[in-house]
Design a protein around this nucleic acid. Structure first.
Length: 601
RNA sequence: GGUCUUGUAGCUCAACUGGAUAGAGCAACAGCCUUCUAAGCUGUAGGUUCUGGGUUCGAGUCCCAGCGGGAUCACCA
């Protein structure tokens, strides 16, 4: 409908002033509630063409639209704003179109659709997931749903950082202080168990450093130099490095231990992923990929993109692009982070015909991805130039950043458990579902608790740092996930009652609509635009805000008008259809955020 | 210091990409459960959108300068 009006506007300008205008300039926006009308055209872009006052232009276009466009019943002009009123039958057919489509406003992928790969999560295997990872995982999953709803084929991927010095630290500590403890014998989740040994390593290592530093100072070194040397010379860190060398040389014992401990961690991660409701189509492990990429670098070297220094290290000179020089291979020939990312890119492209690549990685790596994009482009990856670094801000605590060393991390599993327990407590206090079984109650608490957590994180613009206050925790009132879920549950309840009366929501062929009914129809119809915009901006927060607005509109409607107690049968049917489609849209929108909705709560 | 990013109510966040009088939720105060679920609804109060210029019919949004947060500039990942 909106498109048709826009077309007619373009026609009108052509007919009245003899000029072609672009669709963008003839775009409509929603009329502000304080003015009469549903859609508004801003006519300022046309006044130059018309050589007339804005009011006159608006009048002329308005008159043209009423005459040539069935949907427009009347208009009014305020300064340069042309407010259009849409007639009931057009709204009714809009609603009919929405009602007919289970996934109104979303696009299905076809054979020809571009393939988008989204990398997210990418954990290290030496410690459990924390709140920062939660933000990453929720954003990544939601982004995948949004890209998919915009008609893309989506492959969700995860690159697990399963090798390196940090793993060796945990392994070493486990050997030294562990007494053969396993997840089974300790009752700990595997990732937490390994994380504890990582912390244990750090504790002992620090103690060694302090002792050594004292010794060096006694021998006459300055404090800074002593500390620096102690860090290098501590027996524990040396042992860890030896272990890493053994790992790289495929030492069977080290490899066996490594596999065993990683398995524990993966089992732990899987639980957390499951609780978060996220998953992957393809998981890559750095232990398999970290040697890849070297030949790509060699290839670039041959083609003259890169150069070799006297010490045998390989570099890319990006000063022409306004960046620095970047190391790609160390002088001993081993690869660095950048080389590995080139390698994974190569493997991924072998596995999938990628058209677009999205990396969900924190904003501290902005520079890295700027460089990666240029390098991949030079090396001939067609999607390299336009790769998207979906960069998100840090989660901060009231007294600063999360620091694992200072013990100020918010653990993901703890947080999830707390949210669910809080949801449970709230609903027990409200006493709404005393008739339910324990399992049902717990399931609702899970949906609501997770909904609160997810919405809280996803409603914020991803680029921005966000604040999380553990003491105040997460609200269940106001602009929250539970508020939206609650509205959904109430609508479902109404629809159940209607069904019990033998009513199936069916749209009447003609009915008079009041202002609020029109507003609600309009709000629902905006879902498609919200999805499209979110796809363009890579913006889960856009969907979250839309869901909130829709919910708020419905709640006001719910408060002002009775649905089951409507005056006429037609009106009742209209409102039931409206309610059903609000519920549907909430459900679909929340699904794009990875948030479930309960039938009751 | 260079580059990137951010600055909106006491607090946490919006504002459909340049449109009309900048909106919500917390917190505060005043109301609404005999009526489809009160995790709700209504009202009051709260703003020089960091500062100063510029671009134009119009700027929280774009450009320039400054000030304040954050990130990054490793033969770490």
């Amino acid at each position: 409908m909106e498109k048709k009006i826009t077309q007619t506007v373009i026609e009108a300008v052509k007919a009245l002033y003899g000029q072609d205008v672009e669709e963008k300039q003839a775009g409509l926006q929603k009329t502000r509630p304080e003015f009469e009308g549903n859609l508004t055209l801003v006519v300022f872009p046309f006044v130059k063409i018309a050589r007339k006052k804005p009011e006159e232009v608006a009048e002329e276009i308005g008159a043209y639209l009423v005459e040539h466009c069935d949907a427009v019943s009347k208009y009014n002009v305020v300064k340069g704003f042309l407010n259009l009123s849409i007639n009931d039958s057009s709204w009714l057919s809009t609603l009919a179109a929405i009602d007919a489509d289970e996934h109104y406003g979303e696009k299905q992928a076809t054979e020809e659709s571009p393939l988008v790969m989204i990398e997210y999560s990418s954990p290290n295997t030496n410690k459990p997931l924390h709140l920062g990872h939660v933000r990453n995982n929720l954003l990544g999953w939601s982004l995948a749903q949004i890209m998919s709803a915009n008609g893309n084929k989506v492959v969700k991927t995860n690159i697990v950082n399963d090798r390196g010095i940090h793993i060796c630290k945990s392994m070493l500590a486990w050997l030294k202080y562990g007494n053969g403890e396993t997840p089974e014998t300790s009752g700990k989740k595997g990732d937490h168990l390994i994380g504890d040994y990582y912390v244990a390593f750090d504790k002992h290592y620090k103690a060694e450093c302090d002792e050594l530093a004292k010794q060096y100072i006694a021998e006459g070194m300055t404090e800074d130099a002593a500390k620096e040397k102690a860090k290098q010379e501590a027996p524990l860190i040396k042992e860890a490095h030896e272990m890493l060398v053994k790992w790289e040389n495929n030492d069977p014992e080290v490899r066996a231990l490594w596999s065993k401990m990683n398995e524990w961690v993966y089992a732990g991660f899987d639980e957390t992923y499951k609780a978060l409701g996220v998953g992957f189509d393809k998981i890559y492990y750095e232990s398999n990929t970290y040697l890849e990429g070297k030949d790509k670098v060699e290839e670039g070297l041959e083609k003259g993109f890169f150069y070799r220094r006297d010490d045998n290290s390989v570099w890319a000179d990006l000063t022409k692009e306004g960046l620095d020089e970047k190391l790609l291979l160390r002088s001993d020939g081993t690869s660095v982070y950048m080389t590995q990312d080139i390698g994974t890119a190569k493997l991924r492209f072998q596995d999938f015909p990628i058209d677009q690549m999205i990396y969900v990685v924190g904003n501290e790596q902005n520079y890295h991805f700027q460089v990666l994009s240029i390098l991949l482009d030079k090396l001939g990856f067609k999607w390299g130039k336009d790769l998207v670094h979906f960069s998100y801000g840090m989660v901060e605590l009231p007294n600063g950043k999360m620091k694992s060393r200072e013990g100020t991390v918010v653990d993901a599993d703890d947080l999830i458990a707390t949210m669910i327990a809080d949801a449970r407590q709230t609903s027990d206090e409200l006493g709404k579902y005393d008739d339910m079984s324990e399992e049902e109650k717990q399931e609702i608490a899970r949906i609501v608790g997770m909904g609160a957590l997810k919405y809280f994180i996803l409603k914020v613009d991803a680029r921005k740092n966000m604040l999380f206050n553990p003491a105040e925790s997460i609200d269940f009132n106001g602009n929250t996930g539970p508020f939206i879920q609650y509205t959904y549950a109430r609508i479902r309840s109404i629809l159940r009652k209607a069904a019990a009366e033998g009513l199936t929501p069916t749209l009447p062929s003609a009915v008079e609509m009041n202002e609020k009914e029109i507003a609600l129809t309009q709000k629902i119809s905006e879902y498609g635009a919200a999805v499209a915009q979110a796809g363009k901006d890579y913006s889960p927060s856009g969907i979250a805000n839309y869901c909130y607005e829709l919910t708020k509109s419905f709640n006001q409607f719910y408060h002002d008008y009775s649905i089951l107690g409507a005056d006429t049968a037609e009106q009742k049917q209209l409102r039931l259809v409206l309610a059903a489609n609000v519920a549907k849209t909430i459900k679909n929108g929340m699904a794009l955020l990875g948030i479930e909705v309960p039938e009751r709560m």
